[in-house]
């Protein structure tokens, strides 16, 4: 019959293909649409826009590499934003992780009321991104605020935290450290996985707590430390609302709170320089990718996974 021709062959292949893949792609469909329209599409679009001058009102105008040239050669605020953001990341992430690990170690090994402590320590992480907390922080670091009142109790005289560019970044660093809850929970889970026998054996060999910490805890926890480091670093590069609220939306005083994200927001939505802001967005993406890559690349020197040791 005529249906034995090549058409029928393709029909059955098509049919088979559809039958095998239909359900998978049907369930994936919402994500696929989102992926193309809201993730990969916009990333490519912003790459294109980064080579243009675009103020929304008039169509984008191709200017080649001008945005990037201006950014690297002329734009003082770009360098300032980079410097502020790096300073924030480099100071806040290690302090937060050290704090998280310290508290996790104190909580480890069946302490009483662990559930309460865990909940209390995690609470700031859950509220930390809210505007309410950002507003609260502004008032805590006011010249007449709580922080300076406490300093006065000890005879010190606190600075103008919010208006003195030498100190303003510390308000946000403290805010970041305050939210040490989620790395702490991840450290706790990691600590539980370390076999107790190792510590007991070390004790019999008369190892002190410091020795035990560096010879057992740190090496065995390395994968968890690495995981937390990458996660918190990305988080710190992306942080926005705290700096936005505390600096009044502009990065003030003297651009000392000009986080990269705040600068980007202002370029795009206050000055409508969408092309230039897209170039900034791409630089941010590359920085985060670079740092993640560095973390992964260096990890082979200090992170050893259980099953690799043979």
């Amino acid at each position: 019959m005529w249906c034995a021709g090549p058409g029928a062959y393709w029909d059955t292949r098509m049919h088979k293909f559809l039958r095998r893949n239909f359900a998978g792609y049907a369930f994936l469909l919402p994500w696929l649409i989102g992926f193309f329209l809201l993730a990969i599409g916009p990333i490519l679009a912003s790459l294109y826009l980064s080579f243009t001058k675009y103020n929304v009102v008039r169509p984008p105008q191709w200017i080649g590499l001008d945005n990037y040239a201006y950014m690297f050669q002329m734009d003082q605020r770009f360098w300032k934003a980079l410097q502020v953001t790096f300073q924030f990341v480099v100071i806040s992430v290690p302090l937060k992780l050290i704090f998280a690990l310290g508290v996790a170690m104190a909580l480890d090994k069946g302490i009483r009321a662990i559930g309460w402590y865990r909940a209390l320590f995690y609470l700031p992480s859950i509220l930390g991104g809210s505007i309410a907390v950002a507003i609260l922080w502004r008032q805590l670091f006011n010249y007449d605020g709580v922080i300076n009142s406490v300093l006065r109790l000890f005879g010190g005289d606190g600075p103008y935290w919010l208006s003195d560019p030498r100190y303003s970044l510390w308000t946000l660093i403290v805010l970041a450290i305050w939210q040490f809850g989620s790395p702490m929970l991840i450290f706790l889970a990691g600590l539980r996985a370390i076999p107790q026998e190792l510590y007991e054996a070390a004790e019999i060999d008369a190892a002190g707590p410091v020795r035990k910490f560096f010879a057992i805890t740190v090496p065995l926890l390395a994968p968890v430390i690495f995981f937390n480091l990458v996660l918190q670093m990305i988080e710190a590069f992306k942080s926005f609302s705290g700096a936005f609220i505390i600096s009044g939306g502009t990065g003030a005083p003297l651009d000392s709170l000009l986080f990269f994200t705040v600068y980007l927001y202002n370029e795009a939505f206050a000055f409508l320089r969408m092309g230039y802001a897209s170039a900034l967005a791409w630089v941010l993406l590359l920085i985060i990718a670079l740092f993640t890559a560095i973390a992964f690349w260096t990890s082979k020197y200090w992170v050893h996974y259980e099953n690799e040791r043979g």
């Binding site: 599409g41 916009p42 926005f240 994200t261 969408m274 897209s278 967005a281 993406l285 985060i288």
Partner: peptide
């Protein structure tokens, strides 16, 4: 996509919704 900062897709998304 876990790694992509919201700020990077924000502008094109805004233009799309606009």
């Amino acid at each position: 996509t876990l790694m992509i900062p919201y700020h990077v897709v924000l502008i094109p998304q805004y233009l799309l919704f606009l």
